[in-house]
Design a protein around this nucleic acid. Structure first.
Lengths: 110, 110
DNA sequence: AATATTGTTCGTAATTTTGCGAACAACGAA
DNA sequence: TTCGTTGTTCGCAAAATTACGAACAATATT
């Protein structure tokens, strides 16, 4: 599926939970913000931005990669991390659809 | 702040991470979907919907309450759970703002 | 008052997450 | 080839998460 095809954004609850879980830590939100703002994309700069050990940063990056929200590429001797734009859009649509599904009127709770 | 006032949705990364963390489990997504769709709002019905022990359901509901996404009210002998609409909207705005913050052009990654 | 219904809390176990330093690997530069 | 730079992986420890059954509490009903 290329970026121009119409996409089916039927929510997959498991996938939504995986995206959410990946975002469920302040350091990982900070990393994603950093990358989304294009401040830089190299490990070293990400590492400098965070008050934690580089082994831990590397671990968080690995989790974000596995969630699909970012990619990692070797550009020797550095490693370049980028937002995975297609999955980013997918996550955005998932969350948006999820939140928008709240019904207006509620006999039970209103 | 009532529901009609303009709200400041400056993203608080810690809060965004807390919302995300609360959503980071399939059972909790299922619970939120169930409540958002207003299928019912009582513990018993939520419990019936999920293939896990009631003690575990109760625990997940507690976490969702602590995240602010839902409320819990005793309606003896039942307990009624509802989406916390104000915080729900806040979470929706946080996620949306977060995803929308991705810059279009990227000298580093494109 | 005794009993049934509805959920929460407790105690426990297994697994996962988070974090760190040290060791290691890969590559470029001298 | 040797050295320095850049990140990853390993091994470990501490803490948090997930899950369950049993016990408990609160209220309604009989």
């Amino acid at each position: 599926m290329n970026c121009c095809e119409k996409q089916d954004y039927t929510i997959d609850n498991e996938q939504l939970a995986r995206f959410a879980k990946a975002m469920g830590h302040p350091s990982r939100i900070a990393i994603l913000s950093f990358l989304a703002n294009l401040d830089s994309c190299y490990f070293g700069d990400i590492n400098n931005e965070l008050p934690i050990a580089k082994a831990t940063v590397s671990q968080h990056l690995k989790e974000l990669k596995e969630s699909g929200l970012i990619t990692g590429t070797i550009e020797a001797p550095k490693v370049k991390y980028c937002i995975h734009r297609e999955n980013w859009a997918k996550a955005q649509a998932y969350f948006n659809t999820f939140f928008a599904s709240l019904k207006e009127k509620d006999l039970c709770c209103d």
